[in-house]
Design a protein around this nucleic acid. Structure first.
Lengths: 146, 146
DNA sequence: ATATTAATGATACCTAGTCTCGAAACTAAT
DNA sequence: ATTAGTTTCGAGACTAGGTATCATTAATAT
């Protein structure tokens, strides 16, 4: 839908502008770092990479991006909250506990299953939270190489 | 397996003793409150009910009870951590967002489903976290009574 | 009874995040 | 280009929820 050379960071900023947010230099900095992020990251990590950006601004930006749907919150097994770029729509993550890789879990029947199980209990489903932890293919292969 | 009149609070303390923990008066107080708890509760709520017990002791006790498997951590939709008595084994919760009621989700195929989905992605499953939110039967019924 | 060890509470500390507020920066209208 | 009206900013105070330290106290083993 957009011209070539249109970077991810620019996309993020455009999404914000569409929602009435101004394009400011701290937000550009945040967008650039996030766009270059290969894995999920914490607010603290973002802060370390952008020491010139105020703490409140980091948290504000994260919140805005989550609300806009371009970032999603991820709960790690240790209970820590991370963020990662979200691919369109509601989904869940497969998180590698070794290298931190994550994959989106799509096209599976979890939603339907939950719906029917809830109904069986007389519950009207309103939401759910699911994270799946494990070891990814490449970590399994490099493991015990001797 | 035990004599009659054997209360839940006593069971909790026995579980601790079996694990080498001493039976102390703060722990008895904690066990009594937890045993009488009908819903999930926060560390803070426990603290309010036991102002004579030190903060550190409250948290230490909760940790021990979670490790022992008699309590489990529950993540609410608002992101807050709660605790509730766990019925044997690994399971998930249906949590009513209106009244706070919770039911264990048992005997469903979620584990199997996750196992096969993970395998399809080349992941070796090590764990997962699932909470399901909604409205329970009785809240649905009392809703809009006019 | 005594020695040993575990557990306690007070308090200091920490992490992660929110709130406040005057200053700075962005945008739109002249 | 200036200006007016907003939004956003960062510094720093503050908060919630939890952990670490440690001298004292209490529970158990001998």
């Amino acid at each position: 839908m957009r011209k070539r050379g249109y970077s991810l960071a620019e996309q993020l900023l455009d999404t914000l502008e569409e929602r009435g947010y101004r394009s400011t230099s701290p937000r550009r900095a945040v967008a650039n770092v996030i766009a270059g992020q290969e894995r999920h990251f914490t607010a603290e990590e973002l802060r370390e990479k952008l020491p010139e950006v105020g703490r409140a601004t980091i948290y504000r930006s994260l919140k805005i991006l989550v609300d806009a749907g371009v970032l999603c919150r991820v709960l790690l097994e240790d209970g820590n909250l991370h963020y990662q770029l979200s691919h369109r729509g509601h989904h869940h993550h497969l998180l590698c506990v070794e290298c931190g890789a994550s994959e989106d879990l799509l096209g599976c029947d979890i939603e339907d299953l939950l719906q029917s199980v809830s109904a069986a209990h007389g519950f009207q489903l309103s939401g759910h939270w699911l994270e799946v932890y494990g070891r990814c293919q490449s970590c399994l292969q490099t493991q015990v190489p001797a």
